Computed example of a mutant assay.
Amino acid sequence: MAIGYAAGNLGLSATRRERRKGLLQLLLRVEAWLDARRDARALYAMDDRELADIGLSRTDVEVLNVASWQDRLPAPFSR
């Protein structure tokens, strides 16, 4: 019982919460990056006619991919 009070008084539970919060943020960023990667693959798989149907060209797809891939990396790897 005394150990639980000591850990609470030292703020160890807050440290664990911060670690969990940081891990959750990392996982959410990785998930967003994987979603963006899946979307980019879908756009690359389309031919020029299909891209024109949604108002894009092959150049637009390239620009979107090059401009934003670094922004979707997890925090330790971003620029």
Results as ranks from 00 to 15, higher is better:
residue 17 R to E: 04
residue 57 S to C: 04
residue 33 W to S: 09
residue 52 A to E: 12
residue 56 L to G: 00
residue 21 K to R: 14
residue 37 R to E: 15
residue 66 V to N: 10
residue 50 E to H: 13
residue 45 A to D: 15
residue 7 A to R: 11
residue 18 E to N: 07
residue 68 S to P: 00
residue 15 T to S: 00
residue 52 A to M: 10
residue 47 D to C: 01
residue 27 L to T: 10
residue 27 L to A: 13
residue 61 V to E: 07
residue 65 N to L: 12
residue 53 D to C: 06
residue 36 A to V: 13
residue 4 G to M: 08
residue 25 Q to I: 11
residue 46 M to E: 05
residue 13 S to R: 07
residue 22 G to I: 00
residue 74 P to F: 05
residue 14 A to T: 03
residue 47 D to G: 05
residue 47 D to A: 02
residue 17 R to F: 06
residue 78 S to E: 04
residue 48 D to F: 00
residue 66 V to I: 11
residue 34 L to Y: 04
residue 39 D to M: 14
residue 10 L to I: 06
residue 59 T to S: 07
residue 6 A to E: 10
residue 11 G to Y: 06
residue 26 L to G: 09
residue 39 D to I: 12
residue 46 M to K: 15
residue 8 G to S: 05
residue 26 L to S: 12
residue 12 L to I: 06
residue 79 R to P: 15
residue 5 Y to W: 08
residue 20 R to L: 01
residue 42 A to Q: 14
residue 77 F to K: 04
residue 64 L to A: 05
residue 74 P to I: 06
residue 5 Y to F: 07
residue 41 R to W: 11
residue 70 Q to N: 06
residue 75 A to K: 11
residue 67 A to T: 15
residue 40 A to L: 08
residue 68 S to A: 04
residue 63 V to M: 02
residue 26 L to M: 14
residue 21 K to A: 08
residue 22 G to N: 11
residue 71 D to H: 11
residue 5 Y to L: 08
residue 62 E to D: 03
residue 4 G to R: 13
residue 57 S to K: 03
residue 13 S to F: 14
residue 53 D to G: 08
residue 54 I to R: 09
residue 33 W to K: 07
residue 17 R to D: 05
residue 77 F to W: 10
residue 18 E to I: 06
residue 42 A to G: 08
residue 42 A to K: 15
residue 22 G to H: 06
residue 2 A to V: 02
residue 5 Y to E: 11
residue 78 S to W: 03
residue 53 D to A: 11
residue 61 V to H: 11
residue 31 E to F: 14
residue 64 L to G: 07
residue 46 M to S: 06
residue 73 L to T: 01
residue 42 A to F: 14
residue 15 T to I: 05
residue 60 D to R: 01
residue 61 V to Q: 10
residue 29 R to P: 01
residue 49 R to L: 05
residue 57 S to Y: 03
residue 25 Q to S: 14
residue 50 E to C: 08
residue 27 L to Q: 15
